[in-house]
Design a protein around this nucleic acid. Structure first.
Lengths: 164, 164
DNA sequence: CTGATTGCAAATGCTTTGCACGCCA
DNA sequence: TGGCGTGCAAAGCATTTGCAATCAG
């Protein structure tokens, strides 16, 4: 299925009169290997750790291409750096719930939200093109212990965490 | 009612052991005079055009204070610069619909969305702290004429518009 | 008086770009 | 061979910060 995605990207590239390169292949296959969100810097670090040889500039340029191709979407999770979401191919209309404490993200789909959003837009004289609900919430552990499981364990291990 | 808001800010400032200054007063009263969204730069331009004398650094610092005070909220409308919304005091849980063509923003409140979001969060094991639905949509004119009213008239008058 | 606040300019940090060389088609 | 793509370093840009002077309380 990763093959399928790379193929899709190659068609986009061909259609645009652009070229297939090893750097683009490495990046695309790394991005869609997991369904994780990432920032440009995170992707750059990850690609550097692999055997592929890709510069930071190419990372930015390729992300931009993927966004144009509609294969990647910029999302707002509240951080300072732009975050990208590779999961819109599988789930074209999914939403995000973010833990107010550890900033972990849960993705979910919901037909009711989609319907409701459409109705609201119509009432206002519009037709929905795209919509998303963003929820900031507290998990059980946070409510009970005042801190998320993940943060609790990191605190014990003395790791640093960057919060927004 | 603007007085009330300035008063609220002054109390926040006092409580924090900070000081009331003419710059802060000017900014706060300008921000809450209208219910419009704005970027730091837009606010800076506007304050410069007025008689008040405020530097760009102070604009940034004051916005930051207002956000801490919970009187202003950073929202994501898709632009490159951060956008601020002064309307959460009046409407603590409102949403945004953005025109895909002219980027004009319509704010709306909806109890059903709030309820639905709460349910979804509970189902996932969370308790909602804050939520918002963001809708990108097309208005009637855009659908009929292929371009928004506002953009149509600007095109006729030859003005420039910055689109995302 | 004392310490918060301001303006200015310099510094940051993410992202984009100009350019020369290399590589795909 | 023609040009697109890449890496590098420099440039851009919005935002933040250090510092000396100023001002609020």
């Amino acid at each position: 299925m990763n093959e399928e995605i790379i193929e899709r990207f190659n068609e986009f590239v061909k259609r645009k009169g652009l070229r297939r390169t090893s750097q683009r292949d490495s990046l695309v296959s790394m991005i869609f290997a997991k369904d994780e969100h990432f920032t440009s810097e995170e992707l750059y670090e990850k690609i550097r750790r692999s055997d592929a040889d890709v510069s930071r500039a190419t990372v930015y340029r390729t992300i931009s291409l993927l966004v144009d191709a509609g294969m990647l979407r910029e999302i707002d999770l509240g951080g300072e750096e732009k975050t990208y979401d590779p999961n819109f191919l599988d789930k074209p209309s999914h939403n995000h719930l973010v833990c107010v404490d550890c900033r972990k993200v849960v993705e979910f789909e919901d037909k009711n939200i989609d319907t409701l959003g459409d109705c609201i837009a119509r009432r206002l004289g519009f037709r929905t093109v795209q919509q998303e609900i963003h929820i900031e919430a507290a998990c059980q552990t946070l409510r009970d212990k005042g801190m998320c499981p993940e943060l609790l364990s990191r605190r014990l291990s003395g790791k640093r965490i960057k919060k927004r």
